[in-house]
């Protein structure tokens, strides 16, 4: 089983990289682009973990290491 964790900055947390991306997109003529927020995607191979155990396990990984919940939100999906 695999998991795909998506981490994004919380609302209200300044994202200078997102701003720089927005600026560059505007420079390329994509004038419709408003706010840009950059995040990250982490894919995990969970081996042969029991499907029922996977959500709690990934949740723990997110809170203990993968995301800093002071500044970041996380969500994840499990993939067969």
């Amino acid at each position: 089983m695999k998991a795909r964790v998506t981490i994004s900055l919380k609302n209200g947390v300044l994202d200078p990289q997102g701003k720089a991306i927005a600026h560059a997109l505007h420079g390329l003529g994509f004038d419709n682009v408003g706010e840009v927020r950059q995040g990250k995607v982490i894919e995990l191979d969970l081996g042969d973990i029991a499907a029922a155990d996977a959500p709690a396990e990934v949740e723990k990984m997110c809170t203990q290491l993968l995301a800093n919940t002071v500044i970041e939100n996380y969500e994840f999906e499990l993939l067969d």
């Binding site: 300044l14 200078p16 990289q17 720089a20 800093n68 002071v70 500044i71």
Partner: peptide
Amino acid sequence: ATETGMLPGALLRNANQ
């Protein structure tokens, strides 16, 4: 220290990049 929770808050990328 902020990552361990010994101190509150977090350090982000400098606003001017």
